[in-house]
Amino acid sequence: MPGTAASAHASGQGQLLGIGQVLARLQPEFPELTPSKLRFLEEQRLVSPARTAAGYRKFSEADVERITVVLSMQRDQYLPLKVIRAHLESIDAGATPALPGAASAASFLAGARRYRRDELVEAAGASRALLDEAISASLLPAAEVYGDDALGVLAALVSLREVGIEARHLRGLRAAAEREAALVERAIAPSRRSDAADKARAAERALELADQLETVRTAVVRSALARLTR
């Protein structure tokens, strides 16, 4: 894996950080990050810290940047770690793959964009009233700062409004999403323990189940729409 702590240590470039220093750096943005989660990311081959003679992990600046990218993809795009790993491995190999269902690789490596409300409205070509309607319909949270997912939702609502589909017509989507989330939560409940690594694995499994539910939902909608071509 290019840019790991091992290579940084070998080249003598940059200061190597212990787990506590990495947590101090990243927890303000990712408060759920723990030593167990860092070890889990290593186990999943997403980061490869160097080891001291005593076996302690040491992280380079490149490692910290990579961890930031992984956590941002999880938080902002809800991607499973196996998708993130395959994406980053392609980048490591010199490719520039598009991120499935999200922004480009370049945008993520440059840092995920965050939008204030006025910036979000402008970027989506929407109105402040439409954003308020989306929040009222529980399609978007009431927040001061949003990510790329929110931009995608608001831009989609702009297009849907052009054909007469308003945000209020989609209120049922939130209720359906909550029901699906409850199904997933029950499915992963037996694998959730107190250990942070177990929780991370359960969260990863939850994302995989969500992808499968999305596949079923899309197929059902397409089947329902098929009558239009009959």
Results as ranks from 00 to 15, higher is better:
residue 73 M to P: 03
residue 74 Q to K: 12
residue 76 D to C: 14
residue 77 Q to G: 10
residue 77 Q to Y: 15
residue 77 Q to S: 14
residue 78 Y to E: 12
residue 79 L to Q: 11
residue 80 P to F: 03
residue 82 K to G: 02
residue 82 K to F: 06
residue 85 R to W: 02
residue 85 R to G: 03
residue 86 A to Y: 08
residue 87 H to Q: 09
residue 89 E to H: 09
residue 90 S to N: 13
residue 90 S to F: 07
residue 91 I to L: 08
residue 92 D to T: 05
residue 92 D to V: 09
residue 94 G to A: 11
residue 97 P to V: 02
residue 97 P to C: 10
residue 99 L to C: 01
residue 100 P to R: 00
residue 104 S to N: 05
residue 105 A to N: 07
residue 106 A to N: 08
residue 108 F to N: 07
residue 109 L to E: 08
residue 110 A to H: 10
residue 110 A to Y: 05
residue 111 G to V: 07
residue 111 G to N: 07
residue 112 A to F: 11
residue 113 R to Y: 04
residue 117 R to T: 01
residue 118 D to K: 00
residue 118 D to Q: 02
residue 119 E to I: 01
residue 119 E to P: 10
residue 119 E to T: 01
residue 119 E to V: 00
residue 120 L to N: 03
residue 120 L to W: 02
residue 120 L to P: 04
residue 122 E to K: 00
residue 123 A to Y: 02
residue 123 A to N: 02
residue 124 A to C: 08
residue 125 G to E: 09
residue 126 A to G: 03
residue 126 A to V: 12
residue 128 R to F: 05
residue 129 A to C: 10
residue 130 L to A: 08
residue 130 L to F: 02
residue 131 L to W: 02
residue 132 D to W: 10
residue 134 A to I: 05
residue 137 A to T: 07
residue 138 S to W: 10
residue 138 S to E: 03
residue 140 L to P: 04
residue 141 P to C: 08
residue 141 P to F: 04
residue 142 A to Q: 14
residue 142 A to T: 07
residue 143 A to M: 11
residue 144 E to W: 02
residue 145 V to F: 12
residue 146 Y to G: 02
residue 146 Y to W: 05
residue 148 D to N: 05
residue 150 A to R: 06
residue 150 A to K: 08
residue 151 L to T: 05
residue 152 G to C: 07
residue 153 V to P: 03
residue 154 L to F: 04
residue 155 A to F: 01
residue 155 A to K: 00
residue 156 A to T: 11
residue 156 A to G: 07
residue 158 V to C: 08
residue 158 V to P: 11
residue 159 S to D: 07
residue 159 S to M: 08
residue 161 R to K: 13
residue 161 R to V: 07
residue 161 R to F: 11
residue 162 E to A: 12
residue 162 E to Q: 12
residue 162 E to P: 00
residue 162 E to T: 05
residue 163 V to H: 11
residue 163 V to I: 15
residue 164 G to D: 14
residue 164 G to T: 12
residue 166 E to A: 10
residue 166 E to V: 06
residue 167 A to N: 03
residue 167 A to V: 06
residue 168 R to Y: 03
residue 168 R to E: 11
residue 169 H to M: 01
residue 171 R to H: 04
residue 171 R to Y: 02
residue 171 R to N: 01
residue 171 R to D: 00
residue 173 L to F: 12
residue 174 R to E: 09
residue 176 A to T: 06
residue 178 E to S: 10
residue 178 E to T: 13
residue 178 E to C: 11
residue 179 R to E: 07
residue 179 R to M: 05
residue 180 E to V: 11
residue 181 A to W: 13
residue 182 A to S: 14
residue 183 L to C: 13
residue 184 V to E: 10
residue 185 E to D: 14
residue 185 E to I: 12
residue 186 R to L: 14
residue 187 A to L: 14
residue 188 I to Y: 09
residue 191 S to W: 15
residue 192 R to E: 13
residue 193 R to D: 12
residue 193 R to G: 15
residue 195 D to G: 15
residue 198 D to S: 15
residue 198 D to P: 09
residue 199 K to V: 15
residue 199 K to A: 15
residue 201 R to W: 15
residue 201 R to N: 11
residue 202 A to I: 14
residue 203 A to Y: 13
residue 205 R to D: 03
residue 205 R to E: 02
residue 207 L to A: 06
residue 208 E to S: 07
residue 208 E to P: 04
residue 209 L to F: 14
residue 209 L to M: 14
residue 210 A to R: 12
residue 211 D to R: 12
